[in-house]
Nucleic acid binder design. Structure first.
Lengths: 352, 352
DNA sequence: TGATAATATGTTAACGTTAACTGAAAGATT
DNA sequence: AATCTTTCAGTTAACGTTAACATATTATCA
């Protein structure tokens, strides 16, 4: 019967075999302090031979840092999350930090579990990109209070020492609507207002601002969404919401000629409903989405949408966090709100 | 100026304030050993008051385990990865384990970095779902040799103590091809053979087996793919490959009447090329994909595809790993190859 | 040449936790 | 009443690493 697990090789083993003190081995392994050419060689030989790897737990315990950052994501199935995660990882790697990702599946309890995992494993800092919720926010506040560096991305969270990065959903919503107005539309619907998602509300507000600016009166019946609790709803399922919302809009006596959907998934659902009704996009109804997910290129017709700079959000979040980690004192909150870009495709304009 | 980071609260602090020994506090916190009702209450009061959380590094160091599992993914942007990750997380959570996800972006160096992060942080076990590569595999072998529990998912890796879970790509490829043959097709192309992806090769082999069984001779010109190094190619970009490969197929004097694409992205690219050529799916050319990504429902027409049980792979991987972690002795390799399911949609059959 | 600086290694004491052991008091058992 | 068992709590010694300090040797300089 094989041994359960080979005994861990420690500094002590290396020290004994190479005839030096543990401290000398530590110096060799870390490249710190003075070590003679000769000793260095001899120690490294044994290190390689025994395949020694420093024990992270012991190291963290002594050093009081782990060179590790946690990223908490609410919903992996959203392209936003994956692009963000990659960008964060990449920019952390440059500075020698590892990234551990936790998924919380949009539940308060799992948010808390994820935060705790990271704190308990002494992550040097945490980037949070989950949807806001009371329980999670309370725990997050306590964590920030305790001095752990935290950055939030694309979600609300006010704390005097927590940085904030987000796309400018307000202006994005404004520009999407403005685009439809420029095309001559007057009856423009907003699809997918969700009263738990701040970002969605910002997009709605941008829509309302654009209407107001152009003297178009907002029609409540044209603003549709779900009031149901959706705290556990993944990105994809908003498609169903788009489909159902659009059906409702189509049954109005005076149906809209254009729709601004809260995100691309919602837009895709709406397109399905429009096609089922035998109507043509964009001639009968024009439609704009949000996020520029890969999906948007594959719809028929291709979807006009608002692109938010996800990679940049990841980069800034990583940089802000590292900044905070290496700072000698507690820094004040920094906020970065990034411009969105309207991507015009065939779902609003025939010529394109 | 605020202090940099609040001093960590330790067992010692709790012990002092509640007038007991550290060990007693430890017992209270962990719910182990005997502690009187009264002492328990008094200690917990202080624990809550000071918001004490045990130091994970110290705990791991002493206990020699972390109740943490690592998952290494090659490419987050693939729906496969996200579903797998969720499933793994869920099934680990049931048993009280946390999941840390690392992304390697399909490079050998980053694979190694990810493995090392996890080993160094004393993860109790590792689930690997990256694409196989020499450098990474070598490191992985050393890790497995050292006694760390490892399970690989959907990729090759032979090691006497590493478990293996995968979809049955061979039979999947066979069934997809069989379906096309059943529909009367004789000239069936295989699109996207990639000589670095074992799974893709298995699907190709299934295709060849089906042809052979029905006495259809394989035509080399109908088997197209890229020979270029694609070790860093994310899932999405195989769409371009599908588009270009399909163009090549369409330019043949005797073009195929059906195409089996290595995955849904490739199939989508192919569909684009077919439509651009003014041909109709499935009347002129039928097409089958693989993976049943969410995309497959949104193509026009909806894509016939082979669904692999991703959630189940995650569940089994988690269970096998936990099994290995809690085993008293080193277990022998277990292999699980899971059935795929053909999902027939409109890209092969008009009636559906 | 003696003093100062740079180089090279070793020793000690933590970091925060818990397994293993010890001791004492209270309850149960004969 | 003597013995055994259960309950409760404290002491000691690690887990593997490294910061801080101590010491010894060699090179450098006025």
């Amino acid at each position: 019967m094989t041994a359960l697990k080979k005994k861990q090789i420690t500094l002590k083993d290396i020290a004994e075999r190479s005839g030096v003190a543990m401290m000398t081995v530590s110096r060799v392994v870390n490249g710190t302090g003075y070590v003679s050419e000769e000793t260095h060689r001899r120690v490294m030989e044994v290190v390689d031979e025994l395949n020694y790897r420093p024990n992270g737990a012991a190291r963290s315990l002594k050093r009081q840092r782990t060179e590790t950052v946690g990223l908490v994501l609410g919903d992996l199935s959203n392209p936003y999350s994956t692009v963000l995660a990659n960008s964060v990882r990449e920019h952390l790697a440059v500075r020698g930090y590892s990234l551990f990702i936790c998924i919380s599946e949009q539940s308060a309890q799992e948010d808390i579990t994820a935060f705790n995992s990271l704190v308990d494993h002494n992550a040097d800092g945490i980037i949070v990109a989950t949807r806001s919720n009371t329980g999670g926010d309370k725990r997050l506040e306590a964590i920030a209070d305790s001095g752990v560096p935290v950055v939030v991305v694309g979600r609300d969270f006010r704390h005097k020492t927590v940085d904030f990065v987000s796309a400018d959903n307000l202006t994005g919503g404004f520009e999407a609507t403005q685009h439809l107005i420029d095309l001559g539309h007057k009856r423009i619907a907003f699809l997918g207002g969700n009263y738990e998602s701040r970002n969605s509300l910002k997009r709605l507000q941008g829509y309302l601002n654009a209407l107001r600016l152009h003297g178009i009166e907002a029609d409540k019946r044209l603003i549709t969404g779900s009031r149901e609790t959706s705290s556990r709803v993944p990105g994809y399922s908003t498609e169903k919401m788009g489909y159902e919302g659009m059906k409702r809009l189509l049954s109005l006596p005076d149906r809209p000629t254009a729709v601004f959907a809260r995100n691309d998934f919602t837009a895709v659902g709406a397109m399905l409903a429009i096609k089922e009704a035998g109507l043509t996009i964009p001639q009968d109804i024009a439609i704009v989405g949000f996020d520029d997910t890969p999906l948007a290129l594959h719809t028929m017709p291709a979807l006009t949408t608002v692109r938010q700079p996800v990679g940049l959000q990841g980069q800034l979040a990583a940089e802000m966090l590292l900044n905070r980690i290496s700072a000698k004192k507690v820094l004040d909150r920094v906020e970065r709100v990034l411009d969105c870009e309207l991507i015009v495709r065939s779902s609003t304009v025939v010529a394109v």
